[in-house]
Design a protein around this nucleic acid. Structure first.
Lengths: 213, 213
DNA sequence: GCATTGATGTCAGTTTCTGTCATCAGGCTA
DNA sequence: TAGCCTGATGACAGAAACTGACATCAATGC
């Protein structure tokens, strides 16, 4: 007979996201999260370093995927394309969890203190990616710039992936804060493909820095 | 007769930086900062939203300078150069406070929670810069990318400006984590010029994204 | 003179986060 | 089977970060 229900960490994550969404991050106490998950407040802090970290439990996996993809890239490939491919492969893993990602992003967007944490995670990812590129022989500055570009592409692609396309019926183009409406949703009503969003963002970034051809 | 000593905010800032440097950020309590500044803890929180914010009191001025420079730039100038000039003009204002900046940077580098705050400030600066570029007629995506590049250049230039060149006698080249030793210090023993560091970083970034010529 | 204002003090209270020790199911070994 | 770890959790105390409410009183303006 088990002494406790399994996967306390998972229950804490679910409870936290639900409560943050229902009543807001600041209006939720750790004690409430713990209670809904059926554990003690102390147990929350054994699984997560603080109240924000519970929203970023997947960042380790994300980084591992990206770094692995960089290391597995063919030797001759340009750094920026290595980054693009790596981000696209991470995106593919996230594709099934689009609803989860949307809810999470909405919570983060509403709270500067969560944005801080997200920026730190992305900066860490960028630094680790640059280091991985360097191990492939890319010079220091070029590696840092390519890694930063890759993270930027990830952000841009994520925004498009998450953007409310085909939420209701067809023809809803309101709330498009990014200027032009993108493709990336072949059939109206389907969820857009994250990896494709990233590749599109990368192409546009390339066109921008190399307008001649 | 004045009821309180003037400039409580300034005294709090000085006290905080001193204590954070002496015994570390986490080992310092707000009560200690307030005591050294001759005020109560409550007054600290009237001037700064939290314990970290006291290190970022100048970020408002920095952003105002950058945005002002963007708006004052000649109409035809390329967005990336507008950003470079804007960052250089902000750098000029910071030049006299190099020692202060170094101490502050050391404290931030040692504390992830302060790095978070710094990343948020820089992201805010980037977003505001992009908005200012957009008001000049730069398309949305190009504005965002140029602004991001400008902030990156600021970071790179700052690292070089702060790097320990000519601390003791001549010929000390240890601790150079950035690969090649930069110029930017015409006479050995002088503090490097921040604006020049930024222009150099910008030139290298340009060379990187446009290797052909 | 006198009311108003604004920066600060005072104090109680909530919440976040940490250190420490106790508990006890499951697994391992004799 | 008995007995000893181990690891995850509970229980509890406490420091420190922050907040809200009200009081104080020099300076300012009428």
């Amino acid at each position: 007979m088990t002494r406790w229900l399994p996967d306390a960490r998972g229950r804490l994550t679910v409870a936290a996201i639900a409560l943050y969404g229902e009543r807001g991050f600041e209006q939720t106490t750790v004690a409430e999260i713990a209670e809904r998950a059926g554990v003690t407040e102390r147990t929350f802090y054994r699984h997560f370093s603080d109240k924000r970290e519970v929203l970023f439990g997947g960042s380790g996996d994300l980084q591992a995927t990206v770094i692995g993809a960089i290391e597995a890239a063919p030797p001759g490939r340009a750094p920026i394309d290595v980054m693009g491919d790596a981000m696209a492969s991470a995106a593919a893993l996230m594709q099934p969890g689009r609803d989860h990602s949307r809810g999470r992003a909405a919570v983060i967007e509403a709270n500067p203190s969560l944005q801080e944490r997200e920026l730190l995670k992305l900066a860490t990812l960028s630094a680790a990616s640059a280091e991985a590129l360097r191990r492939r022989g890319v010079p220091t500055l070029a590696a840092a710039v390519a890694a930063e570009a890759g993270v930027t592409v990830f952000k841009l692609g994520f925004e498009r992936w998450i953007a409310d396309s085909a939420a209701g019926t067809a023809g809803d183009a309101a709330g498009d804060t990014l200027g032009d409406t993108a493709g990336a949703a072949p059939e109206s009503g389907d969820a857009p493909d994250f990896a494709r969003c990233i590749r599109e963002a990368l192409d546009e970034l390339k066109a921008l820095t190399n307008p001649s051809r």
